[in-house]
Design a protein around this nucleic acid. Sequence first.
DNA 1: AAGACCATCAACCGCCGGAGT
DNA 2: CACTCCGGCGGTTGATGGTCT
Length: 273
Amino acid sequence: MGSQQGEKGKPKHRKGLWSPEEDNKLRNHILNHGHGCWSSVSIKAGLQRNGKSCRLRWINYLRPGLKKGMFSKQEEETIMTLHSMLGNKWSQIAQHLAGRTDNEIKNYWHSYLKKRVAKAKEMESHIQIQYATSSSDTLDSSPSHQKLATQGTQNINFTKEANQSTLPKLLFAEWLSVDHVSSGNSAISYDSLNLRNGFNQNQTFQEAPMHYLPEGPFGGGEYNDNNSLTHISATEMFNSQLKFENQIVANGFIHCIPGVDLSSNISISNYAI
DNA sequence: AAGACCATCAACCGCCGGAGT
DNA sequence: CACTCCGGCGGTTGATGGTCT
């Protein structure tokens, strides 16, 4: 489309699965130089891919801090809760699941959770038919996801605002440059990042801005080992976010610490100045 | 054993909105 | 204001591997 670069020559862009060499080229380039303009990344990295493809590959696969493997129970619940509130806003849902990408969540939803919810709804309607005439307190006995949906309607406007809020998103390029500064002139290696923090503990700001805040509402006890939200009701979650945003306003800025697990003992001073 | 069918996941496509000119 | 470029998002597709018949 519009992003097709240069009329002259019209570069042939490779499609399909990425080879390990391509991955390495892209990873090394971004770790060393940041991504900047994606359409130029492919050229500078010596790839025959278009910028979008590079971006997607980085975000969904190469980016440090990505969680691989099965979704935990908590993550599932978080997805279902947020989906009942936000609908198919995968990127917003992904912001609440550290290390998970919107694409991953979307796929997981379509392949697994959607069916589960449908099944649950079926069961629920069965139950409602059974008890429809027996009592008037059906609201109290309604399944939890229905309650959550109700909460969702109360929170939906706020949620929208919250996600388009004044939260200072830090782009990976910026984060990288900060990290470069703090680690001297040597380019950090992907492996060293993983070794220092543990792969699951790395996160990027853009995907999960709230999760980097040592003072934030989810610091400390709200986190489990996977850095996912645990045992937090939807209301609590968004109220917390509101509180947190008030803090931002009050303080004027926040401390963003990349790649640091809030519950870990790793000193943040190595990663941010 | 082999073909049909299904589930999963990586990647692509098209659209939209913001920024720049 | 109109246009272009670019990044981001959500929907969809296609490849692949597993299961069923």
